[in-house]
């Protein structure tokens, strides 16, 4: 399948280096994400997982290298990228309701100054329906549980109707019901041919949720199908000295591999 000439990949990164205060956070990243894949980004704290997402969107400047979205620079393909930030990155006391937040997902398609149309409201309602929050459309966002807040962000990303989704820890601090709802939603997006990159911190579930894994710790440690990448050796390289936390997981992997 790799022999036929392919269209430009959803995401291609070459020699990307990002630094904060002259200290490299990401170093020499080379990546090509194939289309229609559900990819988990896994690595220890401070490994540069969120920074990678922000660099792809041009929120943090790259010290070197380039990033292409469907063969073009990000700025030219804005509407093809959907984004789910970390839940703590916004002020949930902001005076907006659930519908207002989901409509923000439509702003990219609308362009400057134009107001959301009836069609945009329809799309927003459909997306809320998909995350089972339609009944909450008029609710102030502060009056939602953590899981509901996360689902509002997902509905907003769906409303962006993008082809490549970047999600920063969508599973952080959500209840079991929301977690399974998110998994179902990710599968559905994948089945529709979307490519999804998910920053994830929980190793045991990473194995079952994702088709491919990107192990990262400042550099790319490994990238490939989950079965090939989720090995004790590679995880050890990724997490380095913090092995004790992982020993259990790695033992499990080791025993099941045998």
């Amino acid at each position: 399948m790799h022999d036929t000439p392919r269209p430009a990949p959803p995401l291609e990164i070459h020699d990307l280096t990002v630094a904060y205060h002259r200290k490299p956070v990401l170093y020499g990243i080379d990546l090509e994400i194939p289309p229609g894949q559900l990819v988990g980004i896994v690595g220890p704290n401070g490994a540069g997982k969120s920074t990678l997402i922000k660099a792809i969107m041009g929120v943090v400047p790259a010290a070197s290298g380039w990033i292409k979205i469907f063969g073009e620079p990000f700025k030219k393909n804005l509407t093809r990228v959907g984004y789910v930030p970390q839940r703590e990155s916004v002020d949930w006391d902001f005076p907006v309701n659930v519908m207002d937040v989901v409509l923000m997902g439509r702003y990219g398609q609308l362009g400057l100054i134009k107001r959301p149309s009836r069609r945009d409201y329809e799309i927003a309602r459909e997306c809320l329906e998909k995350v089972q929050l339609l009944a909450y459309a008029d609710r102030q966002i502060a009056n939602l549980s953590g899981g509901q807040q996360q689902r509002v962000f997902l509905a907003r990303a769906l409303a962006q109707e993008s082809d490549l989704y970047l999600m920063d820890e969508p599973f952080a601090g959500v209840d079991a019901a929301t977690e399974s709802a998110i998994v179902t939603l990710l599968q559905e997006l994948k089945n529709r041919g979307k490519t999804i990159l998910v920053v994830h911190h929980d190793l045991p579930t990473a194995r079952s949720y994702f088709d491919m894994l990107l192990l990262i710790n400042t550099r790319v440690v490994a990238f490939g199908p989950t079965d090939e990448v989720f090995t004790p050796e590679l995880l050890q390289t990724t997490y380095g000295g913090r092995l004790t936390i992982l020993s259990e997981v790695i033992q499990q992997v080791g025993s099941s591999a045998r």
Partner: peptide, 11 residues
């Protein structure tokens, strides 16, 4: 004002 990350990703 609400989400500068999303704003940036919307251009």
């Amino acid at each position: 004002s609400f989400d500068s990350g999303l704003a940036a990703s919307l251009g």
